[in-house]
Amino acid sequence: MSAFPEDIQSSLNSIRPRLLGFARLQLRSAAAAEDVVQDALEAALANLSKFAGAAAFQTWVFSILKNKIIDELRRNSRMECDVDAEAALDETVAELFNERDHWAEMPAAWGNPQGSLEQKRFWEVMEACLDNLPAAPARVFTMREFLDLETEEICKELAISPSNCWVLLHRARIGLRECLGRRWFGESTA
């Protein structure tokens, strides 16, 4: 039982912006995102006969895209070294702690941040903060939290050690925490 072609087309058109955004966050390139989404849509259309049940259609297209992104990340597993962004993040981490590695300044509370998730502007800030991260921590973080991969899978795909992976995830979380604190939760810059 397949949907009518025009339904498929309008369904694809309606999810295309989300597919593009999803891919762009991970590949950090609008052109690469266009390519991989195009690939995924062609694969989806070519395999429509394998697909039954329109309710799960979007989930199915997303799973195709997810696999394409993982392929692309695997092909490009050598992560570019983002010298300036890396140095900026090093500095952020260094400034957080004193010489005994305790807080130089108490991190501020975010109150009840859940309400932010409803706000469109919050997601724009989140995207800007992800873009601000150096490539390596950003990639590992989005693979972990956006593609829902386990660390073992990430290590395998990127050919890095688990401890390297944990270091990158920690740096990504620290960097995002600082960026959201400053740009969304209204913490003052010291």
């Binding site: 999803f22 991190p107 859940q114 998730l117 939290e145 604190g181």
Partner: peptide, 15 residues
């Protein structure tokens, strides 16, 4: 805050 980051990514509108 780290837990919130995970929760937020789970609920990302593109996801």
């Amino acid at each position: 805050q780290f837990r919130f980051l995970r929760e937020a990514m789970r609920q990302h509108p593109w996801k």
